[in-house]
Amino acid sequence: MESPQFSCKLGVLSRPDASVIFCEGETVVMAGIYGPIEVKMQKMLIDKASVECNYRPKRGLPGVEDKLYESLIRNICDTALVTSLYPRSAILIALQEMHNSGQLISCAINAACLVCLESGIDMKFMFGAVTCFLTNQEELRLMPPISDSAVKASFVFVLDNVKERILASHTEGSFSMEQYEEAQDLSRKQIKNVFAFFKKTLNSGKEM
């Protein structure tokens, strides 16, 4: 089955502790991380770091949908990072949409993981996301159809690299239970490529 190509560039920004531009197929997201940094008094947690995520759409102010992505990514990062190592501090992940051609959520999650890995912050495991599309012809595929109207449903699965447990799932549209499970199996196959790409990127970018 045809699957999206990955590409990325590390260290694109100078201000953040780590930054990355991540492309999944045609979708592009830029991510930066600051942390651990000083935290505002009202957000301070005494036993762990508070993880914050800032998601910006391509233009305009973030809307309700963007806030939803933001909280999804925040929750995933909160689970994956060892926040108990940095009490009374904040970890800030900033994400900027550059181009959307369907896999925006999974691309943003993958960019967030890569930027965490790159910054050297402690993580319990790596996480990656895969988007599957269900077309009007009841066909499951990893590549987005050319027109939005051809998509009956889309699934996003976020998995970890240790036991491949599902950390989060996000679905849109209508589908049957079997199709959901089928999409899940497909994501489990594709997630191996995502992690292989992460490893390759970090290993090659490591040459100092």
Partner: peptide, 27 residues
């Protein structure tokens, strides 16, 4: 031991382990 950072795993006799990664923020 669980690994929590991407980097090179180093070991020195007799019992010291560490990871040489890219950390950007000083702890």
């Amino acid at each position: 031991l669980c690994i929590s950072q991407a980097g090179k795993l180093c070991f020195r006799e007799p019992n010291t382990y560490w990871i040489e990664g890219k950390r950007h923020r000083y702890i």
